[in-house]
Design a protein around this nucleic acid. Structure first.
Length: 363
DNA sequence: TACTCGTGGTT
DNA sequence: TAACCAAGAGT
């Protein structure tokens, strides 16, 4: 693994830093989280940007900061509100961890985001990348912030052939960045690597002729920029068959809150059960499951449609039924009857938003 | 380590 | 269309 950094000492460090930072100074995108270096805003942006595209994040970031302008505002918010603000972004534990961490900053650090690697890394949801990003961008600390962009860019610059899909590989790149990072401007150095990965040094067909650090790039000189980075393939999603019911009772419908851990934790949904093998979508079977698992006595009507939704690791195939209650539900924290006006206040995952749109709200 | 955890845009 | 991809972290 040390051998994969054999080109590290061959890089003209000062020239590389200069070319990279100069390019970023001139070409960086105008993004809302780049307006100031407020550690809280930097933090929020970095959590949102995890595995999520810039264009997707922008409107969420603006709304989130407007709704929760400070650490105190977020710390004091109801979980339902923060999940609603995150609705549609995915990876919902990110925002629950963020609020948990923000509460800790409020209580243990007097509301000031920690500025050391050791302290900030103890916060929920702040891993090696996010710690380095906040420290370098908000506080000017020369720590690496190794994300997918950085691994791709540096794998090409240094011609590193380690598999970037393996968790242990990140350390190789951190070692490289510790050596290469500008101590005069660690913020721009880290952001420039990511910006370069996003705009120039893209996964397929990188624009090497436009690259400000082309002359420092070993992969370009060896003509192997399209072979790097090495990344093993992800395995296919597992299929899950679900039955959901849209219950109509005098202009209202029944919604259910999911478990507090696991997939889509604490999000709301139309009553849903997983069905397996032979009896797949048999109505009386689904009715029995609804009673056993959710305590809902429902009479299923027509199968009104089908929703398909692909997650990173599984695929939902939802058969949607119409239905009416055979007996009133016992409303509690996790089971409610709501009107069309009320339902919009609850956070729903996208597949159930699709159900709402197609089979409940829409005419 | 390998798996879990979302979503939407690209190829 | 299916696969791939995007500023990862928790377990």
């Amino acid at each position: 693994m040390t051998d994969s950094l054999k080109n590290l000492k061959l890089v003209n460090k000062n020239a590389f830093q200069h070319d990279l930072i100069e390019w970023f100074s001139n070409e960086q995108r105008d993004l809302p989280w780049r307006k100031d270096k407020n550690p809280y805003k930097v933090w929020v942006s970095e959590i949102m940007l995890q595995q999520t595209r810039v264009d997707t994040v922008i409107p969420y970031f603006n709304r989130f900061i407007e709704q929760f302008p400070t650490i105190n505002d977020l710390a004091d918010a109801e979980e339902e509100k923060i999940l609603k603000a995150w609705e549609g972004l995915g990876y919902y534990s990110r925002v629950r961890n963020l609020q948990s961490a923000v509460k800790e900053v409020k209580e243990k650090y007097g509301g000031k985001v920690p500025d050391t690697k050791e302290e900030i890394s103890t916060l929920k949801g702040v891993g090696p990348y996010t710690a380095g990003a906040i420290l370098s961008i908000a506080y000017g600390v020369p720590e690496p912030a190794v994300d997918g962009n950085v691994m791709r860019v540096i794998s090409r610059i240094l011609s590193i052939w380690e598999d970037i899909a393996k968790p242990s590989t990140r350390k190789t790149f951190e070692t490289a960045i510790y050596e290469l990072i500008s101590h005069e401007n660690p913020s721009y150095f880290n952001q420039a690597l990511m910006e370069l990965g996003a705009l120039i040094c893209t996964p397929t067909s990188p624009s090497c002729l436009l690259c400000p650090v082309r002359e420092h790039c070993h992969a370009f000189h060896e003509g192997v920029e399209n072979e790097l980075p090495v990344k093993t393939k992800a395995k296919k999603q597992r299929q899950v068959q679900l039955a959901a019911v849209v219950i109509r009772e005098s202009e209202k419908t029944v919604i259910h809150k999911r478990a507090s851990s696991g997939l889509l934790a604490n999000m709301w949904e139309f009553p849903t059960v997983e069905v397996t093998s032979p009896f797949m979508f048999d109505k009386s079977y689904v009715e029995a499951l609804m009673m056993e698992e959710l305590g809902i006595e429902v009479k299923l009507g027509q199968a009104v449609g089908k929703i398909e939704h692909v997650f990173s690791h599984l695929k939902w195939d939802i058969q949607v039924f119409d239905g009416v209650l055979k007996a009133p539900i016992k409303e509690d924290e996790n089971l409610k009857m709501v009107s069309p006006e009320e339902i919009v206040e609850y956070p729903f995952p996208v597949p159930h938003q699709k159900i709402m749109k197609q089979f409940y709200n829409e005419e």
